[in-house]
């Protein structure tokens, strides 16, 4: 498993990393889960999740719905799959965003500044989500002040951003 924790020191550094990731996204399929990339407001939950799947693959909506059906049930999104962005809580928005990148079939999933995505009451839910999901290649990028929040993450090792970009990302297959 390649799961890493990367910490930034300042807002400037964070913005710089975000820019770097946006450039990488142009040539490589990297899934970014972040409040900087919100779910699309004029699409429903299900349309948001199916968007990458139906854009990158020539499959119908009903076929795509069969593929994501199990995840909708697991995350309790089945009853709210026709809701829009403004009807969801922060945690649900994060899950929709995660499913979006999961079905993008990205090699790496990056949780960029997750603490910005939800209020404190969802902290434990987020950790539970990380423990339950079988993430093979994921990265959590957060402010170093939030280091204590990830102390118990056994599957994650700390890494430097540049090392991860140059050694892990650039050696991955481009899309």
């Amino acid at each position: 498993m390649n799961n890493y924790l990367i910490y930034y020191k300042s807002e400037e550094q964070m913005k710089e990393w975000l820019k770097t990731l946006m450039q990488i996204v142009e040539s490589q399929r990297v899934g970014l889960v972040s409040s900087f990339f919100p779910i699309i407001g004029n699409l429903s939950v299900i349309e948001n999740i199916l968007l990458p799947l139906t854009y990158h693959h020539k499959i119908t909506y009903s076929e795509a719905l069969d593929i994501v059906g199990k995840d909708l049930e697991n995350f309790g999104l089945k009853d709210i799959m026709h809701f829009r962005n403004n009807q969801l809580n922060d945690y649900q928005k994060m899950i929709v965003k995660y499913l979006q990148v999961k079905y993008l079939r990205a090699e790496w999933i990056v949780f960029f500044s997750p603490r910005r995505m939800y209020i404190a009451e969802y902290e434990e839910k987020f950790h539970q989500f990380l423990r339950c999901e079988d993430l093979k290649k994921s990265v959590i990028i957060d402010h170093e002040n939030h280091r204590h929040l990830f102390d118990d993450m056994q599957d994650y090792t700390e890494k430097d951003f540049d090392t991860w970009v140059t050694r892990d990302l650039k050696t991955s297959n481009s899309k």
């Binding site: 990339f37 919100p38 699309i40 004029n42 854009y55």
Partner: peptide, 25 residues
């Protein structure tokens, strides 16, 4: 109004981050 709002909210960046060409979609 729709595209301005999408740009302001960062939704066009979301589309790009999903490797989707905003022109096409």
């Amino acid at each position: 109004a729709e595209i301005s709002l999408m740009k302001m909210n960062g939704e066009i960046d979301t589309i790009k981050s999903l490797s989707i060409n905003p022109f096409v979609y």
